[in-house]
Design a protein around this nucleic acid. Structure first.
Length: 595
RNA sequence: GGCCCGGUAGUUCAGUUGGUUAGAACGCUAGCCUGUCACGCUAGAGGCCGAGGGUUCGAGUCCCUUCCGGGUCGCCA
């Protein structure tokens, strides 16, 4: 093994251009590939910027050529040589540095490598579990390097943009207090106070509110958050938020400053100019039209309420559902009348996933309809349905009857499936919108109480405060989510800054004064000493970068992600610890119970 | 916790109704080769068919259990 003594790297591979031809250069990096033509050896050298061809010619230097013969994939080398223009017939147009090559004068093997378990290349088809076990090799691939560089750039834009707008980056604790409500906490035992635990933050929510009370006026932080819930393609147990909070603002102020941020990200990263202000939908409208509070509005297929048409229908599934307080809604899948019975059944399975009992359907044909339910419907009902759904020959009408919640959820997801299946989604389009006026509260049927839909510090809308006592379900919140192509990019709210209202909120979600004091006493105490009106928002940085990188897997934009069972295949975390460590923490483990 | 998909050389995969010695490509090793760039040519090595149990004369293939990975529902204020 050799060292780099006396050699200094001049440039990265792709920083060299035809203007540098004739200069002596020193490159350092990994052997991407060796092509051995006998007396002539080509090596593609890879560094973070890209690749450059290096030539070893036995005629020019037999000793050096002999040394180059030893090179294998992923050896780390330093090469000193002359940058040369390739002869015209040897130019590789598929390579950014394809006009150039380095004629080697010196080679040092800085580190050898075993044959890697998978080939380091763009668009690797190697199994992801294998790539995660050897993540440091996976991260050598240009696509992942590009993703992490992109991530860095987005984070930098966030810091620059919010700095320019008067925000201060302030760190908040990672070891903090467990709070009720919300996701499961990750707990950290205290050694000095046996039996007590810290919790890792689900978000810095309370700390940023306290910073407003401290008078910092505008705060931002790029920070890790932790939620002990099951993973998804777009969800990791530890993730990063661009978190911010502002004083003396209302909804419009928060929205405006964040539109500017997203606009700048798209301008600088993708060279796309997003028009502001962004579209807005109220929560109610989003649900009614798209069956989702994070609608993908790149395509139509909107939901239509047909309850009034079929409320007295002979089809009991419809009329009984409505009689029991439910509803019937439908999607017109334009042109999907050609779907086979099997395909329609598969759509039925889709809605069943979301709790629907079934999917009723009608195909509009030249001379009438084809449908298992048509015989239960009168001619008038059929005619009204067609009109409401703007049905034409060749269309497939799809109906779900159930509680509103299930109808929205199942049709909302069916809509996405149909959008894909009917190829209605323009994957090069970026569709950004705000969803506003979320309900403040929702009913937890299991616990039979109200819970905060956003969090318990969210302010109700001024005009709805009167309903807090009479009909909490009617109260809308000063909460807003920002949605990109059907993904929730971020969300936030104006907070309650009045101690009376905050106490009332705790009471409505079932906290006694004692419990509220126990859990959030520090906040209520702070509320006694002059609280500016404030509000904020948090973006999911991972998700934002994921969408900018055009991948649907959040692991592709995280350096060391976790797999579905929340373990890290490289480090093998989580893992058992020494009995000694547990003793010191006064912790005993028990076998998990069956069931 | 539920549902769906997957696990066979280093890698990506094929493997028929259960039937002889489990194949291919890439990679790897060695040799030849002075303009390659997915270099080419020749030869070679390489397998706990995820694991355990069962059925069978016989299991990569069928059954049961289990482990691992992915997607998803629940969950994620």
């Amino acid at each position: 093994m050799e060292n780099i003594k006396g050699l200094k790297r001049t440039r990265l591979c792709t920083e060299l251009s035809v203007n540098d031809v004739g200069k002596e250069v020193v490159l350092m990096g990994w052997v991407q590939r060796r092509r051995d033509l006998g007396a002539l050896i080509f090596v593609t050298l890879r560094d973070r910027s890209g690749i450059m061809q290096v030539v070893f010619n036995s005629e020019a230097d037999p000793e050096l050529h002999k040394k180059a013969f030893q090179l294998r994939s992923e050896y780390v080398i330093a090469v000193r040589g002359t940058l040369a223009l390739r002869s015209p017939e040897a130019i590789n147009r598929n390579m950014p540095t394809g006009e150039l090559e380095v004629l080697a004068k010196e080679l040092r093997i800085l580190s050898k490598s075993e044959t890697p378990p998978f080939h380091i290349e763009e668009n690797s088809d190697a199994n992801e579990a294998l790539r995660l076990k050897y993540r440091y090799l996976d991260l050598r691939r240009p696509d992942l390097q590009g993703n992490l560089i992109l991530r860095h750039r987005v984070a930098k834009i966030a810091r620059d943009y919010f700095d320019a707008n008067g925000f201060l980056e302030i760190e908040t604790p990672v070891l903090t207090k467990s709070t009720p409500e919300g996701a499961r906490d990750y707990l950290v035992p205290s050694r000095v106070q046996p039996g007590k635990f810290y919790a890792l933050p689900q978000s810095p929510q309370l700390f940023k509110q306290l910073l407003m009370i401290s008078g910092f006026d505008r705060y931002m932080q790029i920070t890790k958050c932790f939620r002990d819930e099951d993973l998804r393609a777009d969800r990791q147990p530890e993730f990063t938020q661009i978190d911010l909070e502002m004083s003396f603002v209302d909804v419009e102020d928060v929205i405006r400053v964040n539109e500017g941020f997203i606009q700048r990200v798209f301008r600088e990263i993708l060279d796309i100019e997003l028009p502001v202000p962004f579209k807005r939908l109220t929560y109610k409208e989003a649900m009614e039209r798209f069956g989702s509070d994070k609608p993908d509005t790149r395509f139509g297929l909107e939901l239509k309420n047909v309850s009034d048409i079929v409320k007295d229908s002979g089809f009991k599934v419809f009329s009984d559902t409505i009689a029991n307080g439910g509803c019937v809604r439908a999607i017109n899948a334009k042109g999907a009348g050609t779907f086979s019975r099997k395909e329609i059944d598969a759509l039925g399975e889709t809605v069943k996933t979301y709790g629907a009992k079934g999917l009723a359907w009608i195909v509009i044909e030249d001379n009438g309809v084809r449908s298992p339910i048509a015989k239960f419907l009168t001619e008038t009902e059929l005619q009204n349905l067609k009109e409401r759904l703007e049905a034409q020959v060749g269309d497939l009408l799809l109906f779900v009857a159930d509680k509103e919640e299930i109808v929205f959820n199942s049709l909302g997801h069916l809509r996405l499936v149909l959008g894909e299946k009917l190829n209605l989604i323009d994957h090069d389009k970026y569709d950004v919108l705000w969803v506003t006026e979320f309900p403040l509260l929702e009913r937890d049927e299991e616990e039979n109480r109200w819970v905060a839909k956003h969090h318990p510090f969210t302010s109700p809308m001024d005009e709805d405060i009167e309903y807090l006592d009479t009909d909490p379900s009617k109260v809308r919140a000063k909460a807003y989510d920002i949605i990109l192509n059907g993904y929730e990019l971020g969300g936030g709210s104006i907070r309650i800054h009045d101690i009376e209202l905050q106490n009332k909120m705790f009471n409505i979600i079932g906290f006694s004064d004692e419990e509220a004091k126990e859990r959030f006493g520090f906040l209520l105490e702070a509320f006694k000493y002059g609280v500016p009106p404030h509000g904020g928002l948090a973006f999911g940085l991972d998700r934002l970068v994921m969408l900018l990188a055009k991948t649907s897997n959040i692991r592709d934009v995280i350096a060391f992600p976790k797999v579905q069972n929340a373990s890290d295949l490289m480090t093998n975390a989580p893992d058992y610890v020494d009995e000694k460590q547990l003793e010191e923490l006064c912790i005993k483990t028990v076998e998990p119970s069956e069931n």
